[in-house]
């Protein structure tokens, strides 16, 4: 994903001299691509995320289009007030790219886990939030963010993510792509955890449960029409998120349904009012937090039984 992000940014930067990359000692080896060919486009602010975010807003006020890149946790938590006051309140054309979001920093633990960023940032007016699930969708998000004249937060992973989309996905704001069709329940998820959701859907298929899987990359705005439609036709909606169940995608589903008058059972699977636990590989930490395909399938089966 990081490579896809950099390649997409490189393309944008080649075509628009106003596109710049801001870092807080937070780059990756892929940055070299831009650093070596366009050194005047890279600004390393040192370890100081708040200053970097506010400076990005200042740059945008004078016509640049900054892509701010750092660990999601430091971006969303540490510089939150700067995202709010300097970027969003002032409607600045700044793109915030959080890396290693969710449980991505699997060996470093809860200080680095980004499991409340959506709760925090979704509440800020005027901020578009995109959560791509694979490299191709990451590239699409970076380009879509460029089209949007205003603040955008893009939530990406640590690197090495598998492809979910065969081709470049068509990405539209406020639209959820269907990854797999099904009749019984609809599962909404965004980001890398969609791999586990697809695995869970295979397991559920063995139990004769037909699962529709939706890619909720456009977290804000969400696809309200889709949520309403699924609520009408399915016996249960499920939100799976590599994030707290408070304030994330599951909450977005409930917020949408609360104004529709369509009662539907909504199961939220994510991190339950706790910090992400465990250390290890990404897959191991996902499992330790009950978000592997098997655990997701079991939670859904259990909810269906008690429904």
């Amino acid at each position: 994903m990081q490579k896809a992000y950099l390649l997409a940014l490189y393309e944008l930067a080649q075509n628009d001299p106003n596109v710049v990359l801001l870092l807080a000692d937070s780059g990756t080896s892929y940055d070299e691509l831009i650093r070596s060919s366009m050194p005047d486009r890279v600004y390393d602010f040192g370890i100081g995320e708040e200053n970097m975010v506010a400076a990005a807003a200042g740059m945008a006020s004078a016509g640049l289009i900054p892509y701010v890149f750092t660990a999601g946790a430091f971006l969303a938590y540490r510089s939150m007030e700067f995202i709010r006051n300097d970027v969003c309140l002032q409607k600045m054309n700044v793109k915030l790219v959080g890396m290693g979001t969710g449980l991505g920093w699997s060996t470093l633990g809860p200080t680095h886990h980004t499991t409340e960023d959506l709760s925090i940032l979704r509440a800020i007016p005027g901020l578009t939030i995109l959560s791509p699930c694979d490299p191709a969708e990451t590239s699409a998000c970076i380009k879509l963010a460029y089209q949007i004249k205003g603040p955008v937060y893009v939530r990406i992973g640590m690197g090495g993510e598998k492809n979910i989309y065969a081709d470049n996905p068509l990405l539209e704001l406020g639209h959820f792509n269907t990854l797999r069709d099904g009749n019984d329940i609809s599962v909404f998820a965004s980001g890398i955890i969609l791999n586990e959701v697809l695995r869970a859907s295979d397991i559920l298929q063995e139990h004769n449960i037909s699962v529709k899987v939706l890619d909720a990359c456009s977290i804000k705005p969400p696809d309200e029409a889709c949520i309403r439609e699924e609520a009408k036709s399915k016996k249960m909606l499920v939100a799976v998120e590599e994030h707290s169940v408070t304030g994330g995608l599951g909450s977005a589903l409930l917020e949408t349904l609360s104004s529709t008058g369509v009662p539907s059972k909504v199961l939220r699977i994510g991190i339950n009012n706790q910090f992400g636990t465990g250390y290890g590989t990404y897959d191991e930490v996902v499992k330790a937090n009950g978000l592997d395909g098997q655990s997701i399938a079991e939670k859904i089966l259990s909810a269906l039984e008690s429904a």
Partner: peptide
Amino acid sequence: EATTGSLGHGLSFGVGIALAL
């Protein structure tokens, strides 16, 4: 040129403008 109110923001914002200029 900038919305302020929460203290300590203006200089960083100004650094950004100065960089862009």
